[in-house]
Write a protein that binds this DNA or RNA. Sequence first.
RNA 1: GGGCUCGUGGUCUAGUCGGCUAUGACGUUGCCCUUACAAGGCAAAGGUCCCCGGUUCAAGUCCGGGCGGGCCCACCA
Length: 788
Amino acid sequence: MEQKWQESWQDNKVYSFNPESGREVYSIDTPPPFTSGTLHMGHIYNHTWIDIAARYKRMRGFEVYFPQGFDCHGLPTELKVEKELDVKKEDRELFISKCAGWTEKAIKRMKKQFNDIGYSADWSLTYRTMDEDYKKLIQETLLEFYRKGILYRAKHPVLWCPRCGTALAKAEVGHIEKEGRLYHIDLECSGHKLTIATTRPEMMPACVGVLVHPGDERYQKFIGKKAMLPVYEREVPVLGDEAVDVDFGTGVVYICTFGDEQDIAWQKKYNLPVIEAIDSRGCMTAVAGKYAGLSIEEARRKISEDLVEDGHIRKIEKLRHSVLSHTERSNCKTPIELLPMQQWFINVKDYLKDVVDASSEVSWYPPFMLQRMVDWTEAMDWDWIISRQRVFGTPIPFWVCECGQIMSAEDLGLELPVDPRGDVRECSECKNTKACGVGDVCDCWIDSSVTPLVIAKWQRDDELFKRAYPASLRPQGYEIIRTWAFYTIYRCMILTGETCFKDLLVNGMVAGPDGRKMSKSLGNIIEPEEPLKKYCADTIRQWAAGGTLGDDYPFSWEECDHSQRFLIKLWNISRFIEMHLKDYRKGDAVELRDVDYWILARLQNLIGDCTRNLDSYVYNIPLTDIRSFIWHDLADNYLEMVKHRLYKEEIYGKDSRYAAQYTLNRVLETILLLLSPFTPHISEEIWSSLFGGTCSLSNWPEVDEDLRREDALGNGDLLVELVSEIRRYKSDNKLSLGAELELLEVQADNKVASKLKGLEEDLKATGRIKDLRIKVSDKVDGFELEIR
RNA sequence: GGGCUCGUGGUCUAGUCGGCUAUGACGUUGCCCUUACAAGGCAAAGGUCCCCGGUUCAAGUCCGGGCGGGCCCACCA
């Protein structure tokens, strides 16, 4: 029946945002998944949390603003279109339309998957980063950054992926540990051998200096001299610098433009020339002489062979080291080169303190995740390279003339969005028709890092913006704190002067059933189709709710089994209750018994605990508590202890039966409400047949303090304990639980005896006892039983 | 190397402000069809709470040190 409810929710627009309701808006800045064509378990996990939050807040009386967008641009789509549809990038317009078409289909599939788990987003609010409106807004923000002087174009060594043929941001690269070689190469220096150690001999043509530590006695004498490079017969200065590690390799390092970030720092510090030895395809340039045109790996092999042959190599040792590689949002893993290139940048370095301040204003769940943001921000030493040499992306709205003049779409009086690629304009400076539209597109994070503005309709709908910005909640995984969270906080702060969200809910990653990170090589990947085929959505949702804030969480078939069994149990409980509520009429005067007060008191505690936890985005504990209450307190104990009152009105009286009905009705009503955010389908199904109306739009239950009676808790617990003793006796004596007992004699102290006064009837009936005797005795502590 | 985080029966897990016999699930074993449910119920076995030290009347919990995972960052050219 889940599909029935999903369709009903969608068709009747049950969860549509209503700006007229007058309720306080609770807006959710949901993560737009990349449109790969399918959701993975991580999405199921994360978005179930989001949906629980949305459903809970709705029941708490908020007007929940719950859009779901899609992040469309990206290299994987380009690669798929090239391969599957055999369309070439060079045919730009066709290529882009094919990418868009492919993405449309992907979104359709992914949207269905969202609906399959009972996702309560308002699909009329969906945004897609490839839409014209969306690109328009992105370009507006870029122009604003340009006007503020934060967006600039410059030639600078950039992180370059030779395989993907594009510049990358720091956040897109990481280190991969690899087995490499450390080459010890002799250089000639005033009649002596000076031996450098390097992992990259192919960088030799770009060598512009040799460095030693100024305190290193072995090499002090060389400082200020010139060293002769083998093969190239070129002299470079020998310099002394504190940053050289005397213990690594030979303690002599050669600096090349550019081998790593340290080279950039040294080149700047000593004002050394820049030699570009590697081109954008990852091949050696003309300066490499006889190695020109070779790939990096070929050149490395070749030059090391030549150096060995000529006797310049003293030693080659194996070395495990980390290689900067293209690791994020791509399975490319190609080593990164640092190439000086004209690129577009956004100045972040001058705003890092503001980002830290803004991040600190956000309430982080769990709080320690703030530290990750602070660490990342404080370690940031590069501006953000936003240009990508790709095709399917948001174009950068500028024209650059050969003379160096830059003109924005605004300068040209053009309406956004624009696609300047291939467009040539007259330069406003030199008046030549040589201003070419920028051929690059934006980094995907440029698209996605203004989602709080997009959803709140920034500069489009001031009324909505006032109510929906800052977003109430930003849910996301910890792996994109340094990207999505960082960039969003930064850009929205620049654009609005405000921190863009109030609460930041951080989830961990979904691990495989073996507890290890899901990966192809471990063969432990679970696709959502698999569990969704076997279990229903309310089951998967319970699994997802079991995760803890910020922690990685394994997928578990056992947990699904248990969750599924719980649903069946709940179904049977409600069937039982429904059966006994057929003739129940609400509103008559009710005289509750001790056991009734007991279950109702426990229910009040449950409501309080659940509310407290859900308010701080903790889901695993309340779900466990609710399930335990239903299974054990309600089903195992309460139901068994009131059956006699329900079935035998002629013995126990009409009032007693009515009190039990009243209690059952109230308990069932409340637990369905508590469960609704977690298991909306079954809650709705039972609710609709028993109570009418829409469970998930009802008010969240409030604690009734009058029912929170300590004495009722104590009395009920005593009854549970006694019943448990009787069950143990029957179990030990291989009797069925329905077997009648001749005698139960309770020796009780005064305290227990007085508690038992209101429980005798229930004890006798539940235990099937013919003769119940209670004797007050000061010899016992609590109670002692004699059973026959 | 730095930061964060975790370590609880065979496996996973709860444990707030230190407080009685350490929670629950899965699995295992025995028994039982209880006028909702055998996809159930009742019960049993199973623990040096990673180790060492400290604070305290009292430590799984707080502090210090160590060991071992995980994640992030930085790197060694």
